[in-house]
Structure formats: C-alpha cells, structure tokens
Nucleic acid binder design. Structure first.
Lengths: 250, 250
DNA sequence: TCATTTTCAATCATTTTCATTCAAAAGGAA
DNA sequence: TTCCTTTTGAATGAAAATGATTGAAAATGA
C-alpha cells in the first residue's frame, strides 16, 4: 500500500467520523500500529488532523479562531495596558470607531455601561459589546478570516455615513519616515478613512511595531496620535517631534 | 473509547439538557465514575462546562447568547430539516443572501466547501461560514442583540450593492390574507429588500408561524416561495394557490 | 442538631498508548 | 548485481489513562 493512499484513507475516515482510534486505522488500512503513528505524526505536522491520545481527531473547522487566538497571546500584557489607556480617553456620549485587531480589542472590557456609540469593522466584537450594554454599528464588507476585519467597498461606504469623536486604529508598522503601514491594501483604506472621519484618531501599537514597514501605507505620523508601551529612546523622540504620543508602562 | 470522543459525548449531552449527573454520563459513555470525574475536571479547566455537586452543567457565556440559544431549542428538529431542504436548492456558484435567524442558521452546516458567496446580515454567522470555507460579505448596520441581525439604513445601503441568485429569509408570521410579517419594522425593510434583490426568494418557516400576524408587513404571499414542515391542511392549500411551497417531513 | 447517604479528591495498581530505537524489507541509482 | 536511502514492523521503557479503593467533605432528612 502506498503511503499517500494510506494518508488519504485516514483523512477520509476522519472526515466521516470526528475521531478514529489507532487500532481502527491500523485495521482499516492493513498497516501496523507503528506505521499509523508515523502517519498521524506527519499529517499532524501538515495540520490535516489533530492527534489525541489513542488516535486522531478532525481538525477544528475554525480556520479562523486559532490564528487570532495565537496572535492574542503575543505581547498580551502590553496590549492590555494600551487598551486600558485608550479607554481612559473616552468620554460620555462619544461616538467611537474601533478598528479590528487584538490590541484594539483590549479596549472593549472598559466600555461596560458607558454611554457611547461604537462603530467597528470587527464582526467578532459585536457580541461582546452588546453584552456590555453598548450600542453597536457594524460596517459592511467582505469578512477576512485572518484579521477578523470587514473590508472592501461596502466597508468604506458604510463608514462614510458616520463621523467619529475618536477612532482607535490597530497598525502593523510605524516608521519615522514611512509613517503607518499595514499588509493589506484594503484594510489600509478602511483605516485611513476612519482616521479621516474622526476628530481625533489614535493608533494603538505595542513596541514591537516600531521601525517596521509593511506593504500598504495608511498615513503619515502626524495623521494620528499614538498610544504605545514603547520606552523612551531616540526613535520615539524622533516620532514625538511630529505627533502626540501617550506612553504606558507595564 | 477515545478520551476525546468521550469529551465530545459529554459536551453534546450537556448541550441538549442543561445538566447531567455523573452517573448518567458514566452510563452514557460506558466509562467509570472516576474517569468521568477526571473528564469533568479537565473540561471545566477548558471552560467548556461547570462542575456542580453530583455532575456538571452548561456554561452560560455572556448576557447575550442565552436569549438566542433559548430560541434555538424551540422546534429544533423542524428547523434543522427546513434548513437542510433549503440547502438542497443551492447550486454551484450561487450568490446567496441568508437572513439572520435560528431557522436560516440551520442552512450553514450544509455549505461546507460549496463554491458559493454568502451575504448575510447576521454577524454571528461569519465565523462559522469562514470556518466552512465560504466567502462571506456582511451587511453593515446597527447590531440588534435580540435577533442577532444588522438593521437600519447602513444595512439597506450595503444590500443595494448586491444581487442574489437566491435569498433565504426567516419570518415570524405568515397569513393567507396579511402575507409575511415580523415584529421589527427595520428588520422588515431589510427582509423585503433582500427579497426584491433576488431571482428567487425563499421564506423559511416552521409550522408554528402559520396564521400568525406580526406588527410589520414584509410582503405578500406571492413575493416568495416557502419552505416549511407544515402538514397538509386547508390553510396550506390556500397558500399553495398563490405560491410554491416545499414541504419537508420530520 | 445528628445520623445517614451521596459525592468528592487523592492514591494505587493495572492497562493502554507513546516515543525511541533497531533491524529487516523495499525500492532507486550506478 | 551492489550500495544507499527510505519505509516498515517489532521491541523497549516511559508516560498517560483507567478503574477501584479509601477517608474526607458535602448534601439530605429526620
């Protein structure tokens, strides 16, 4: 029996049932227990299935959730502090835009029962916000799994019908010369538009984003204020010449 | 029996009933009391359930979900069958609108890896659909906790930029004379618009909705086709004079 | 309150499964 | 063929899961 064929059989069986034991698979393919183990090891590396004690189980359908949750773990305390600092700027009656992203997400818990209206392009913020008793508007648009954002013409159109007191934007890179950048051009347009529609725009960034440059430019340094945990250094000083920076300690 | 499999069984049972005793679970899975205890301990750590003296109970995530989940339970088998029947109408390459609602939600599992584009006004369908590998567009709008729908001018504006091969609409009432009705006028407008933008519009309704009249009119009987589990009777016959009805058995 | 019953957490012995190693078998190239 | 690499199956001790047992804790009912 060809190795590839065996792999197919294993995956096919797992598609029908949610789990399968090593012994079932061994019997079903005619291969020995050891071989099946090796197969499962390889297939797990390829993210085709998940090994469990005694066998294997289907990979959790959610192509989306894991990515976001993984990301969530990175630099978590910093993000939480930045989110808290952002929330402190919010006043009664504010109309806010909150961009999709793991850092901006940290603002949410601080909005409980605040009298604000939130517009967001993050479809998975909605349930949380409603639960906190906040009035929520979602932009339309195409749903992007990787970042959990809504993008495209519909997102931009919907945004046009709002004006914000404050907007909180996530960003992938900031560079003294190249300004704010992010990988996806369509996301960049939405961020840019939200900034333009706000009296005050805040970019939330942990220190790892400094001097990074991504593919799509969102704007120049002066186009927004910055909230970060970056410690004082020459790069930060340079940026502070151009715009206001709120520095949080962790 | 695989450990993972047992965990799934436990969670599945808890999803149906609100609580389950250790003994029930032991009997149901064939595992010993000790093993079940260990399972519950682990699953509680993962926040999948809450242990209580003598067994375990469902976890309630937040203030919002319960309402919708309660509703979910009502007439569940009927809704599942109706959702399945609706999915059978879908063809390769279709552009679909799927309305927010517990009945329309039952279509989702049948969309796995189908080559379709889905537009929806239900913000909590997005993650599921992306997980199934479907391209998703969300309408904009104000998020309504009670029904999980996006409504208002932004929703209508976003919808205008699409045309659908088929739309699947949830509805609260159908009446031979008064047509389709639903409680919220803003939701009614969205439903109406989606129907207008579709080559074929389908209203999904379990039999409890017949001869019900709600506050806001969505349209006349002939404005959509109907998918229901209503058994043959005079009321259904009357309606069938006006429009096509697909009847499912449960 | 107290006594009784049920459930719980901790521990132990047993069984099952796992990762690692090694040698045989099966290809592939010169 | 011979030499070399890859795949396979078996063997091993280590790790994990399981079921039974026990005294402590919690619930129950008088």
């Amino acid at each position: 029996m060809l190795t590839t064929k065996r792999h197919e059989i294993i995956l096919a069986l797992l598609k029908k049932r949610k789990t399968a034991s090593i012994h079932e698979l061994s019997e079903h393919t005619g291969a020995s227990i050891s071989t099946i183990r090796r197969d499962l090891e390889k297939l797990e590396q390829e993210e085709k299935l998940k090994r469990v004690h005694g066998g294997a189980s289907q990979i959790t359908n959610n192509r989306y959730e894991p990515e976001l949750e993984e990301k969530q773990g990175l630099n978590e305390p910093a993000k939480a502090e930045i989110g808290k600092a952002a929330a402190e700027l919010i006043e009664e009656g504010d109309c806010l835009f909150i961009d999709a992203g793991t850092t901006t997400q940290q603002i949410l818990p601080h909005l409980e029962d605040k009298n604000v209206v939130v517009v967001t392009n993050a479809y998975h913020f909605v349930t949380t916000l409603l639960g906190l008793g906040v009035e929520v508007y979602l932009t339309g648009g195409r749903a992007k799994a990787k970042t959990g954002a809504l993008i495209g013409v519909q997102a931009e159109e919907t945004l046009q019908s709002f004006r914000f007191d404050k907007s909180f934007i996530g960003m992938n890179g900031i560079h003294a010369k190249h300004g704010y950048t992010t990988p996806d051009p369509e996301e960049a347009r939405v961020k840019r538009l939200a900034m333009d529609l706000s009296k005050r725009a805040f970019v939330l960034m942990d220190d790892s984003k400094f001097q990074q440059v991504s593919f799509s430019k969102v704007g120049d340094i002066r186009d927004a204020e910055i909230i970060t945990n970056r410690e004082e250094d020459s790069i930060l000083s340079e940026i502070q010449k151009t715009t206001r920076v709120k520095v949080v300690k962790i």
